[in-house]
Design a protein around this nucleic acid. Structure first.
Lengths: 106, 106
DNA sequence: AACATTTATCGTATATTTACGATATATATA
DNA sequence: TATATATATCGTAAATATACGATAAATGTT
């Protein structure tokens, strides 16, 4: 999708551009089997670190890190540095917002 | 993502494989600005036809048709042939299931 | 039957995503 | 300070997604 098209779409919406984009980014982020699995894993094991997640998944550490970045950029997840490791959690407030918005929109 | 990886993931889930895949496909389908817009449009104008949707969007008819196919494959939308046109609606039952599943999972 | 209208599909170019190994960065420990 | 450990980033190859024009298919109309 070109920027031109994105600009054309960014007019007259019920959500503000920022919220709308974030909402769509959340859908996109969770619309991948690996990232969906990561979300479930963090739900089950809040505060798990990257190594835990890597062990749980059939892909390389570098790829896990890339997927984590997508989830972070969608503001679904936050990583807190704890010593040499990073602990990951869902951002409960934003997951709640997503759930509420899903209910509200559809 | 390779098929090998998809197979590795398809084990020991809370949702059945079919439901899990459908749930993720729904996220993916709605995780695109054009398709999200289409969903909102159909919500607002149930039974609108392809021409309506094309008029509402800044992309070619062929591309709209492709996006509609993705939404249909995710079982979010159904098209009913009505004369030479096709009328599109959200599949309320499945949207409801999606909403319920979002509440249940997260 | 011929034609007009509407939508889907085909072929294809380009952009984006996904995956990996290699390497950089950052912190804890010896 | 040197080393080990954990995670992020870089470069890149391959797969997938997105967009388009051209054209096929399906239906209504003359």
């Amino acid at each position: 999708m070109t920027n031109e098209i994105k600009e054309k779409l960014a007019k007259n919406k019920s959500l503000s551009l920022t919220e709308r984009e974030r909402f769509i980014a959340m859908f996109k982020a969770m619309g991948n089997p690996i990232r969906y699995e990561m979300m479930e894993h963090m739900l089950k094991y809040p505060g798990c670190n990257t190594a835990n997640i890597v062990d749980h998944l059939p892909i390389a550490q570098a790829t896990v890190s890339q997927h984590l970045k997508v989830l972070k950029e969608a503001e679904l997840v936050i990583g807190e540095i704890e010593g040499p490791a990073t602990c990951y959690c869902l951002i409960d407030e934003n997951v709640k917002w997503f759930k509420e918005t899903v209910q509200k929109i559809f």
